[in-house]
């Protein structure tokens, strides 16, 4: 893709529909629209259903759940919020922020070492780190549970953060290593000549140049950690420390019969990620594909 001719890239930037006349045949066009229309409805409708019903009373829900609410019961949201959703939100924000910052920092250092130095055992280190990609977290679950108890950090924020970081390192290091390997070396050479050490080069040259991949990796990790379920379920027992995915389970069992209040709570829990995704779509998808295609 690097040596695309100017003429070709000019065509590329034209409205693409025009360069494919036969693709624009009305029959084809409308079939695709209908097909994707159906998929879009299936994809979005459960979320819309959740949203509209979260404003109803349980009684309305039994009647016809596809109808719009006749009266919008905002108090469902009030009740869901009062039930303590804020605490789960704060825990999730805290655990996600700390885990992602640590994962990115540790992985960037590892990726820098693996891509810019030659040293004894380099290949072994590479396999050691990337090997983590092949392991199912379930396999480590039980021993981790005991190790965390022995370290005295079971049922603390660290019981989530440290395993999240450890399991995040392989993928993020993999992403960053391939990115750094593609960076030109001239600036680093110049920095070394100016007397900078490896840490200075990492901080002043590599980090600024790696901003895009840092952002993508941070987003992917943030979504993974925010949504993580199994470790949070197993390593946390206090209500005060639960993150959103586990907190929702407490909600559901406590509010058992108040379905529409549960729905309001689900909407409140879903909003942060949906907003973050819609705001950062491009970066997120670029990071994802960088990982998947090279994987």
């Amino acid at each position: 893709m690097a040596n695309v001719k100017p003429a070709a890239s000019a065509t590329w930037s034209l409205p693409r529909v025009r360069s494919h006349p036969e693709a624009a045949s009305p029959l084809m066009r409308w079939s695709v629209i209908v097909l994707f229309g159906v998929f879009t409805v299936v994809s979005l409708y459960p979320m819309i259903w959740l949203l509209t019903n979260s404003f109803k009373t349980d009684f309305d829900l039994f009647e016809a759940s596809w109808a719009l609410p006749e009266v919008w019961h905002w108090e469902n949201y009030r009740r869901a919020w009062d039930f303590g959703i804020a605490r789960y939100l704060i825990n999730s924000v805290l655990v996600t922020t700390v885990s992602v910052s640590l994962t990115v920092t540790v992985s960037l250092m590892a990726a820098y070492a693996l891509s810019r130095f030659r040293f004894r055992g380099q290949t072994a280190f590479l396999f050691f780190i990337l090997g983590g990609l092949m392991l199912a977290p379930e396999v480590s679950l039980l021993p981790l549970f005991r190790i965390l108890q022995q370290l005295g950090i079971y049922n603390t924020y660290l019981a989530m953060i440290l395993p999240y970081v450890a399991f995040g390192i392989p993928f993020v290091t993999f992403l960053m290593r391939s990115y750094i390997m593609g960076l030109p070396r001239e600036l680093e050479e110049a920095a070394y000549i100016d007397g900078a050490g490896p840490l200075g080069v990492l901080r002043n040259v590599i980090v600024p140049l790696s901003r895009p991949i840092i952002a993508s990796a941070a987003l992917i990790e943030a979504m993974r950690v925010w949504n993580e379920f199994m470790f949070a379920l197993t390593f946390i027992s206090s209500e005060d420390l639960k993150t959103l995915p586990i907190g929702i389970m407490s909600f559901v069992s406590a509010l058992q019969t108040e379905w529409t209040v549960v729905m309001a709570a689900l909407v409140l829990s879903a909003l942060p990620m949906i907003v973050l995704f819609l705001a950062t779509q491009r970066q997120y998808i670029e990071g994802l594909t960088a990982g998947a295609i090279k994987g």
Binding site: V106, S107, M109, A110, Y112, A113, L114, F117, F119, Q122, F125, F128, I129, G132, L135, V139, S140, L141, L142, P143, L144, R146, I147, L162, P163, V165, A166, F167, I169, P170, T173, G197, P198, L199, L202
Partner: peptide
């Protein structure tokens, strides 16, 4: 330098990924 840069990643993965697998 490269060993120092790798140290945190290796320690974390050893304690929280690889040792648990062997323990299992």
């Amino acid at each position: 330098a490269p060993y120092l840069f790798l140290l945190p990643a290796v320690v974390l993965m050893l304690v929280f990924v690889y040792i648990p697998v062997i323990e299992s």
